[in-house]
Amino acid sequence: MRPSSAGEGQALPGQPARPAASGALAAAGAYWRAVSAVLWKDLAAEFRSRELLSAMLVFSLLVVLIFNFALQLDRVARENVAAGVLWVTAVFSGTLGLNRSLSQEKDRGSLDGLLLAPVDRSALYFGKMLGNWLFMLVVQAIILPVFSVLYNLPMLLPLNLVVVLLGTLGYAGVGTLLASMAVHSRSRDVMLPILLLPVAVPVLVAAVQASGGLLEQRAWDEISQWFSLLIGYDVIFIAVAFMAFDYVLEE
């Protein structure tokens, strides 16, 4: 009744197990081709319509502006809350992107087509996840310079870019799994943030603390634990999502 569990590796079903390393290498190659096919499909579709990125981008800019008014930010307050505003922006626009990305898939029925392809289903997960991650990064690439100018803060510090990479990776990693479930529910537009935000609290805490520490130029000793936390979260949740994704798709 159940398909082979996702953890059993990347061998293609229906392909005879060949001895020697060349077989494993070929399987890995096929796996990567499947991942990049899914990723490429998303990028190509986005390049044509640009609806996802533009929505995320405009939304992010609005959040940055709204916070400026809502928190009545003067110069000192701006510096104190900048890291928080940055990550709230990333998280909310990320939710927007994740929701669109997976609900498009469901509405067009394109996931069903992909399911027929003879590849390990976890390749679909990695393809979608990398796409979502990339979209979040593109938004950040535009928002960070704008943010630096508006808040007059050095957001583009190399280490802060690492924080952005790690934080968005974890968020996209667990978000892709949860979004693929949320789109099936009746109230799918509100379901994703409700499912995702409480689970993503550690990413938010660690990323805000790391970014904040960097902006305040704290010592590396104080900041390094947040990097460890981010890496740990990313590894654990991508592994869990990778194993669980098989069961989401099972029909």
Binding site: L178, M181, P198, V201, P202, A206, I236, A241
Partner: peptide, 20 residues
């Protein structure tokens, strides 16, 4: 299936949240 997955993901996040 979805509830089982969310029950697993949610529970794993609890200790990490605590440490954070």
């Amino acid at each position: 299936r979805f509830a089982a997955i969310y029950g697993i993901v949610g529970f794993i996040s609890v200790p990490i949240t605590f440490f954070s």
